[in-house]
Every structure is written in C-alpha cells, then in structure tokens.
C-alpha cells in the first residue's frame, strides 16, 4: 500500500494551530509536527484506493430536508439568568467578550 510520507514543518503546524484557535507551546509544536505527520502519512494510503465514479457519502440518515414548524418551543427556552449561569465573565446580563475592533 502506498504510504506516501506527509511531513509537516513546524511553520505549517503553527499555521494550523492558528486556524484551529489553539495556542501551542514550542515543545508542543515540535511534538505535534511528528505525531500529526505520522497519522497523516498513515491515512494517505487512501490515495491507493480506486474511487473513480464513486459518489461521496456525507450522511447515512436516509433522510433529506427535515423540517419543523416555525413556532417557539417554550420548553427549550432559557431565562436570561439560566443562559448566563455558566459564563465566567458577564456584565449587566450580557456575556463579556474580548474586543475584536481596535480603537483608532
């Protein structure tokens, strides 16, 4: 079986970590470059499988376009206090988040 090696550099790992919103230490980045590469090399054997004229399968529910009535389900509504109950940082009934715009 074709096990083409897929070797990721530490720069590629850093870029991936940024995309995945993960903060990795230098040691973690080095380790991850090894282990992610070894798993990717393993799964690369898929390349040798003939999938010409094969459709993709993304789900196996046997269902399509499942709709529900457009009505409010009171049983699933949370009070403001309940909705905020697990947040560590809230103010005046709002979740506090980091600013995403810079002040000019």
């Amino acid at each position: 079986m074709d096990k083409a090696s897929t070797k990721l550099t530490t720069d590629e790992i850093k870029k991936l970590a940024k995309l995945a919103n993960l903060k990795l230490t230098e040691a973690q980045i080095k380790k991850m470059a090894e282990s992610v590469s070894s798993v990717l090399s393993y799964v690369s054997q898929l390349k040798s499988l003939n999938t010409t004229d094969t459709e993709e399968t993304s789900q196996v529910t046997g269902q399509e376009n499942v709709f529900r009535d457009d009505v409010v389900d009171a049983e699933r509504m949370l009070s403001q206090a309940e909705a905020l109950s697990n947040s560590k940082n809230n103010h005046n009934g709002y979740f506090m988040v980091k600013a995403i715009f810079e002040e000019v």
Partner: peptide, 19 residues
C-alpha cells in the same frame, strides 16, 4: 465564553485530532 474553560484545557490527543 458562554460556558466552560478556554481551549488551552484540551488534552494533547484532542488537540492532535483538531489539528
């Protein structure tokens, strides 16, 4: 933000799968 702790709390195995 709405619940739980931040992403630095994932284990190495979980971070690897996300990556």
């Amino acid at each position: 933000i709405r619940y739980g702790n931040d992403r630095s709390n994932f284990t190495e195995e979980t971070m690897r799968r996300i990556m």
